[in-house]
């Protein structure tokens, strides 16, 4: 058991918990964009930064990764913490001006004007990496990756071409916090990451429900017969 303070209030936590987990449980508001309960933390967006004082040492840490410690003082809304959040939100707003969630968070922090030239080529992607982590560790295919570095970094498939291994499951689009990933089901086909997938039709209700490649992938992984998987969730 660890005991420390958040904004002056005493809190308790289990060893191994992060400051963010404890703060949220205790009702303190810390904004996040790249954090996901199931996928864990990667410390990319930096929005969840808090100020931690330990003895005389004051430092700024990402609460999503920082393990709780006895006797620390955590501040979730100090002057510098607010400055950091505003700065990050203004930077993200300049990068993804059309992202609703970024707009929403920015206005919450009073960031209305962007002092920079707005990007037109980044879409709504804030490079949180949740799609890549989902594809790799939840779906288990690793179709996506980051390419390049610095401001040119982007999420993509190898060589920006349709991926051989992508099964069209769309989990990346579901998990994306900004709605950047384009997925379209039309005319019996799904298009995602420049690849077109034929959708399976449920033999019972005749509904199109999932890409055939995805069902084949599941069948191969689980050993369940493909005919069984062709039946949609509603009819099972």
């Amino acid at each position: 058991m660890k005991e420390f303070k958040i904004n002056g209030r005493k809190v308790q936590a289990e060893k191994g918990e992060t400051v963010l987990e404890v703060a949220r449980r205790e009702g303190f508001d810390i904004p996040t964009l790249c954090y996901h309960e199931k996928l864990g933390s990667d410390g990319r967006c930096r929005l969840c930064i808090v100020e931690v004082q330990r003895g005389n040492r004051r430092r700024f840490v990402t609460s999503c990764l920082y393990p709780v410690e006895n006797g620390i003082d955590v501040y979730t809304d100090s002057k510098d913490v607010i400055l950091i959040r505003k700065t990050i939100l203004e930077l993200l707003l300049a990068r993804c001006p059309s992202s609703d969630i970024v707009q929403h968070l920015a206005s919450e922090y009073g960031v209305h004007d962007v002092r920079y030239t707005k990007d037109v080529d980044k879409g709504k992607c804030i490079l949180c990496g949740q799609c890549i982590r989902t594809c790799e560790s939840i779906v288990g295919v690793s179709a996506l990756c980051m390419s390049g570095k610095g401001p040119a970094k982007k999420v993509t498939t190898p060589f920006d071409e349709p991926s051989e291994v992508c099964i069209g499951c769309g989990a990346c689009a579901v998990v994306c916090p900004t709605g950047h990933i384009y997925i379209e089901d039309r005319g019996g086909y799904r298009t995602i990451w420049r690849k077109k997938f034929e959708l399976a039709r449920c033999p019972q209700c005749n509904r199109l429900h999932a890409p055939i490649e995805q069902l084949e992938f599941i069948s191969k992984k689980t050993g369940v017969d493909i005919d069984e998987l062709l039946i949609c969730q509603n009819c099972k």
Binding site: V141, S142, A143, M146, P158, F159
Partner: peptide
């Protein structure tokens, strides 16, 4: 590209990881 793909297959690493490294 073919060399990245070949090496990834031989080492049992996803192609996407090889591409990520090649562009980094």
């Amino acid at each position: 590209k073919e060399a990245i793909s070949y090496i990834c297959k031989q080492l049992d690493i996803p192609f996407s990881k090889g591409y990520e490294m090649a562009t980094f």
